[in-house]
Simulated scan of single mutants.
Amino acid sequence: MLQVVAAALRLPYAAVRGDGVGWTDSGTPPTRIESISLRYRGAPVGELLVGVRAGQSALTRADRSVLELLAGPLAVAVHATALSADLQRSRERIVGAREEERRRLRRDLHDGLGPVLTGMAFQAEAARNLVRTDPDRAEELLATLRNEAAEAIDGVRRLAYALHPPSLAELGLAGALRRQVGQLEAGSPVVTLEVPDALPALPAAVEVAAYRIAVEALTNAVRHAGAEHVGVRLHVDGALEIAVDDDGPGGGCWQPGVGLTSMRERAAELGGSLLAAPDDGGGHVRARLPLLEPTVPGAPG
């Protein structure tokens, strides 16, 4: 398009810049360049840079009229390109997070549970060999083996919790959140939980993401908001909506730490969205998760 614009108006140079980055250009930049703002729904998304013809000090009024007409479609194209780039970066972060989770689980199994089970096998064999010749020593080994087995079971439970909180399978989303609220220490802010009388059957990924987001937002509010009251609400209206609000001092802005980034990535992974910010009335987290799991490009059918 830029080549056509430059050729039609006999301009020596035309370029589009978005977010301070040159996206595409045509021609050689002359000494004098003028810019036309590209705006999408009132918000600036970039600029159209145009070279002034040799012998002229500025674009003519006719040139500007034509270029301002073209600015609308160009702004839409720049906005769409930016959204596509953001989506690609989001997908890359999600894929990276998944791979990091796999590496963590593999490391925990290999470096943690693996050696424990190997040691238990050797101790069991040693105890078997000592049963007749040294029963006291065999009993000591069996006692140690029992303790290590208990530790191994705890390790398996921790891994299982990382994949799918047991309370979800036992109680469902509403029940698991009620248990979480009930476990808050005395002296914490007053927490209210509002859930529909009957939640629809939720996809497992949606249920886990909703639980993790709600618990993370609740934990942050209880620990850091300085609030007297925290409200957690679930609502279903074509999607599962999670809202966590506190009446803390608010103001300022939240720096995107690990917890906030994790919540956003969990929502994005399901094709949902998450907004989190404070205002003068306290802190607010809003997540919306589609009930239908999206098809991820490149995923097996």
Results as ranks from 00 to 15, higher is better:
153 I>K: 09
166 P>V: 07
199 L>M: 12
158 R>N: 00
80 A>Q: 13
71 A>D: 00
238 G>M: 04
53 R>L: 05
26 S>F: 10
149 A>H: 09
20 G>Y: 13
287 A>E: 02
76 V>I: 06
17 R>W: 15
280 D>T: 14
88 Q>K: 13
238 G>Q: 00
98 R>V: 11
86 D>K: 14
178 R>Q: 15
18 G>R: 13
237 D>Q: 14
43 A>K: 14
222 V>L: 07
52 V>D: 02
122 F>V: 04
208 V>G: 06
37 S>Y: 00
70 L>E: 08
112 G>W: 04
144 T>Y: 07
9 L>I: 00
195 V>F: 09
284 H>M: 05
291 L>Q: 06
77 A>E: 07
269 E>Y: 04
86 D>F: 07
9 L>Q: 06
110 H>Q: 04
67 L>C: 11
193 L>S: 01
256 P>R: 12
52 V>N: 07
183 Q>H: 01
23 W>E: 02
46 G>N: 04
197 D>A: 13
92 E>W: 06
204 A>N: 11
104 R>E: 03
58 A>M: 13
217 A>G: 05
97 A>W: 07
301 G>Q: 14
117 L>G: 03
175 G>D: 02
146 R>I: 01
83 L>V: 10
177 L>V: 03
81 T>P: 01
147 N>D: 05
214 A>T: 11
230 V>T: 06
276 A>C: 13
135 P>K: 14
295 T>G: 07
12 P>D: 01
222 V>I: 07
152 A>H: 01
269 E>M: 13
196 P>E: 08
105 L>V: 10
54 A>E: 11
252 G>Y: 05
227 A>Y: 09
211 Y>C: 07
98 R>E: 12
199 L>I: 11
44 P>Y: 09
119 G>L: 06
201 A>G: 13
217 A>H: 09
171 L>V: 03
192 T>C: 07
256 P>Y: 01
38 L>C: 01
35 S>N: 06
274 L>A: 02
292 L>S: 11
89 R>A: 08
22 G>E: 14
36 I>A: 02
261 T>I: 02
162 A>Y: 10
157 R>W: 01
201 A>N: 14
16 V>A: 09
245 D>V: 09
170 E>Y: 01
204 A>C: 04
219 T>R: 12
297 P>C: 07
187 G>S: 04
79 H>P: 12
51 G>E: 08
107 R>V: 04
257 G>H: 02
193 L>M: 02
274 L>G: 01
108 D>V: 15
265 E>W: 03
163 L>F: 00
15 A>W: 06
131 V>G: 05
72 G>N: 02
153 I>C: 03
204 A>V: 13
198 A>L: 14
184 L>I: 07
160 A>D: 10
169 A>S: 13
272 G>S: 04
82 A>K: 11
93 R>A: 02
112 G>N: 03
43 A>Q: 14
166 P>K: 09
45 V>E: 08
123 Q>G: 11
294 P>F: 04
218 L>H: 00
219 T>D: 10
296 V>E: 04
102 R>I: 15
235 H>E: 13
11 L>N: 08
279 D>M: 05
160 A>Y: 03
46 G>D: 05
301 G>R: 15
82 A>M: 10
197 D>P: 05
74 L>N: 04
215 V>F: 02
121 A>R: 15
276 A>H: 11
127 A>R: 03
283 G>I: 09
252 G>E: 06
48 L>Y: 08
220 N>H: 10
39 R>N: 10
116 V>C: 01
53 R>G: 03
